[in-house]
Design a protein around this nucleic acid. Structure first.
Length: 268
DNA sequence: AACGAAACCTGCGCGC
DNA sequence: TGCGCGCAGGTTTCGT
């Protein structure tokens, strides 16, 4: 599922678990847990204090620990009842001290979790290399970092160490909104173009957050992830449909192995 | 150092 | 109906 708006939406829903205490944990598929993680069972008898996000990462805060969770391609959380039978693709189960059971579900098993001590958050290897989210990103430093890259701007915008939170859908939409060709080399962009990319990123992500993210798979009915942004998509998944500005057909190509949708007339 | 490609997984839809 | 292939909202690791 997840780009920044979807992850924020998940966090918002999971906040209803705040102040509940974990009573039991079952790990069904252990590769979801990062090998560097502390023992996940340390969370038993701990109270979930809050849930926040950094980019596409979910942070479950306990008094002394933080559980870092990344959904990658298909990770989902379901809030169920303890008595509910184990569903297919449920890999990690957190039971709480009431009847609640939080289930981590992941068809492709790409998602990862890591339990750390709170004081190790700052130097966590996954988090510390991340750039700022577009809302906090400084225009000068963004221009400078983008300009170092001798590859397609599409690829650079997917790099979370350059800008944190965009994924394939929103990068396609941001490039369309900024009228920039996804194949254009990053080091050829003008200062004005990188400014526009940052503005479009904030605009699109803010609207997507407001709409609860994007839901593009019919079978997806994960709690909190029934987003509405799909009705705003201008290019993503719209191959051969007409650009609403110039009426030419939306093209689909591959860049860095990822499907890229764009209008070759409007995006220069 | 920087880049591209492969690896990690499962399920779905399509063409034959 | 069945099979093989390509495809999917991401990140890390490996090779050049």
């Amino acid at each position: 599922m997840p780009e920044l708006p979807e992850v924020r939406t998940v966090a918002k829903v999971l906040k209803k678990l705040k102040n509940k205490k974990i009573s039991n944990i079952k790990v069904i598929y252990s590769k979801i847990i990062n090998p560097n993680s502390l023992d996940i069972n340390l969370l038993i008898n701990k109270t979930l204090k809050d849930i926040n996000t950094i980019g596409k990462y979910l942070l479950f805060n306990f008094d002394e620990y933080i559980l870092i969770s990344h959904l990658r391609m298909e990770g989902k959380y379901f809030i169920k009842n303890k008595n509910d039978t184990l569903a297919k693709h449920e890999h990690i189960i957190f039971d709480f001290n009431d009847s609640t059971s939080l289930r981590y579900h992941d068809t492709r098993k790409f998602g990862r979790m890591q339990l750390i001590k709170k004081e190790d958050l700052e130097n966590n290897s996954s988090l510390k290399k991340l750039a700022k989210e577009p809302f906090d990103l400084d225009k000068d430093s963004f221009y400078k970092e983008v300009h170092k890259k001798n590859k397609a701007i599409k690829t650079v915008l997917l790099d979370q160490t350059i800008i944190n939170g965009l994924g394939n859908i929103y990068v396609n939409e941001v490039l369309y909104d900024s009228k920039i060709n996804p194949l254009k080399l990053a080091n050829k962009l003008t200062r004005n173009e990188t400014n526009n990319l940052l503005d479009s990123s904030c605009k699109i992500l803010n609207l997507a957050i407001k709409e609860g993210g994007t839901t593009i798979k019919s079978y997806t009915s994960s709690l909190g992830v029934e987003g509405n942004y799909q009705k705003y998509l201008k290019v993503h998944l719209r191959e051969n449909e007409l650009c609403e500005i110039c009426n030419n057909k939306i093209k689909k190509i591959k860049i860095g192995g990822r499907s890229t949708y764009y209008c070759e007339i409007c995006q220069k």
